[in-house]
Design a protein around this nucleic acid. Structure first.
Lengths: 352, 352
DNA sequence: TGAAGGAGTTCAAGTAGTTGAGCATTTTCG
DNA sequence: CGAAAATGCTCAACTACTTGAACTCCTTCA
């Protein structure tokens, strides 16, 4: 506990009896310019003192900190996978993500008024001079101006699951809602269902994907005049899931199939069905979305769209790295839409 | 897209027609030393240019980067909460966590041989000069030496859910396994169960808590000679959950109650029970651990110990901050044990 | 013998600020 | 009226390194 702080290059140079510049050069690999014996001396001294390069200094000098800011909501297991994907690619390129959370992390409802907090978090990241930014924010318009400023300063921005209300100013990556909705619709149609319900989530600003998912689903069935679709959604606090599930299951006539915009909502249906003694899938087929960690373990196991969150993370990271490498130069903003896979399990069956 | 990089203090000073030192002092709040008009000029210039303080420089000069390294495994929803807890406290003190993951994030089995990778990740954090380190690692002995070096350099280390094999050299925070095991045991005893099984997880080095949890449970029942306890555990790849669950449920006589060291294992029991037509809790009571996001939604809802991951995160962060503030000075390493709450739901009942 | 060339190493000026000490003015007070 | 004190601001050194340019030897060759 003597309080010896981290060794400096100066110490190494002194120990090896060379100038700082020599030490610096040798430790950075510019070895052929120096005598073999000198190199050995410096390397040994560095090892013995436990010297480590200081990326802060590097960051200051080159303007590259090798850190990517990441802003996400504290949400379900999907986000863990997105982060994992990001991390793999970034770490592979010797970058590190700096993750901040929006929302007070305690109370989801607070999200709505967190525009300022979100900007505050971005500031924290920028103060640390991150090289790029990956965001899944509750996008107030205030953000856009920030984006522009960042892009002007050549700090690339990638947004996940966000639809730009004005013209697209940053790269974007999202689940291909249309293709997913089609897949679900196709599945249910092929099973002969004609009376279908859709249970959406809280459709708040920070859950804009819920809206898109529901609408895509409605649209996918719009061409089939013989199929009836009715949508429902949770209240803005997300507290009435069970009630709505019960309401859906007591409709006359009762829908024979149900699409839930996430597996979370499917849970309510399972619960309500159990309460009414309805059997899944015999009485009602249920399709979820996301394939959250519990989906396969439900009784019956839930048919659901498995997103590719790791893939989303990986590609978001790659998008940023490409921009940073300049491979991407000044290309206009791209949108990448990532597919998802329909995992058919026991919760859907032929309509008898 | 003009490529104007971030404005420097020099620019602000120039615009306000003062020296850099004046600008620096005014922007850092040392305002009373300067004329009101000068302050205004500097503040205006800074705002107009969009100047932001550069924490890299601050970090270099003061040796404090206001970043805390966090190393965690890519695991279940519990970790999201731990991170959230960490984040709340750290952000509140103007710190930011830098999170890295151990393991290749794809294949959990890889963990075992990741000692090197873990050290590599720590290096990444140290290269960025984090002020402190919070770890849930797969602790090879190699780490210990690293710790010592860090502590010597006054970089505080806090470990989560780790039992030191040598003497405790860093602060530690963990779930109070003994109290939890007692609570579960007490619950099952009070329901009249006398033949109890315990299903542990993969008991690998990086899941040392599983061992402690199982042992604590066995111990909690050791004083009751009329109660029979038998333990089982998954193989080291964690692939035989269902088989073992089936094995347990076909014992003669069949245990009337089952404690699973996490809710994940409870899922196997549910599945096996469904297969054999056994009813929960009438034929067998089941207790889980962790209260993962799906626990309440199972049929029947799972009785489980709800950990306080957010609390663990919060306290780990506070521990680090205390050390950094010197409030903690050179106190010897502490261990904080965090309790958990028994959530009694429908999966346990009186033994008839 | 002197110039050219190369190997090995160092100088000094950056990077973006911070900060203790000090220097002009102006004001206050004896 | 002159000295001390207060006000307002700047100098220069420091943080930990990097890097283009230059400098010192020593060898080689004309």
């Amino acid at each position: 506990m003597s309080g010896t702080s981290a060794p400096r290059l100066k110490d190494v140079a002194l120990a090896a009896n060379v100038s700082m510049s020599a030490a610096s050069r040798i430790l950075r690999g510019e070895r052929d310019r120096f005598g073999e014996e000198t190199c050995q001396r410096v390397l040994d001294a560095a090892r013995q003192l436990g010297w480590r390069r200081n990326l802060l200094v590097n960051g200051m000098q080159t303007g590259r900190t090798k850190m990517i800011g990441v802003m996400i909501p504290p949400y379900d297991s999907v986000w863990v996978d997105v982060l994992a994907g990001l991390h793999i690619v970034l770490a592979g390129a010797d970058y590190l993500p700096m993750t901040v959370w929006v929302g007070d992390c305690q109370e989801m409802p607070h999200f709505e008024k967190d525009d300022d907090q979100g900007l505050g978090q971005i500031s924290r990241l920028l103060d640390r001079r991150v090289d790029g930014l990956i965001l899944w924010p509750s996008f107030a318009v205030a953000y856009y101006e920030h984006f522009r400023e960042l892009l002007e300063r050549r700090v690339p921005v990638v947004v996940i699951d966000h639809e730009f209300s004005e013209d697209q100013i940053a790269d974007s990556i999202e689940t291909d809602e249309q293709r997913c909705a089609n897949a679900v619709a196709q599945h249910l149609l092929s099973l002969g269902h004609k009376n279908i319900a859709c249970l959406s989530s809280r459709e708040t600003a920070w859950q804009a994907w819920a809206v898109r998912r529901r609408q895509s689903f409605e649209q996918a069935l719009a061409d089939h005049p013989d199929v009836k679709v009715k949508s429902w959604r949770l209240n803005s606090w997300g507290t009435d899931g069970l009630e709505i599930a019960e309401e859906i299951l007591t409709q006359e006539p009762r829908p024979t199939a149900l699409f839930c915009v996430t597996d979370h909502e499917a849970l309510y249906i399972y619960e309500a069905a159990a309460k009414f003694g309805l059997r899944i899938p015999e009485d009602v087929s249920v399709v979820g979305f996301a394939d959250l960690d519990f989906a396969a373990s439900l009784r019956p196991p839930l048919t659901t769209m498995r997103q590719r969150p790791k893939d989303i993370g990986r590609r978001a990271a790659q998008l940023i790295l490409d921009r940073l490498d300049g491979d991407f130069g000044d290309h206009p903003p791209t949108t990448i839409r990532v597919g998802a896979d329909l995992i058919v399990r026991g919760s859907t069956s032929q309509h008898s």
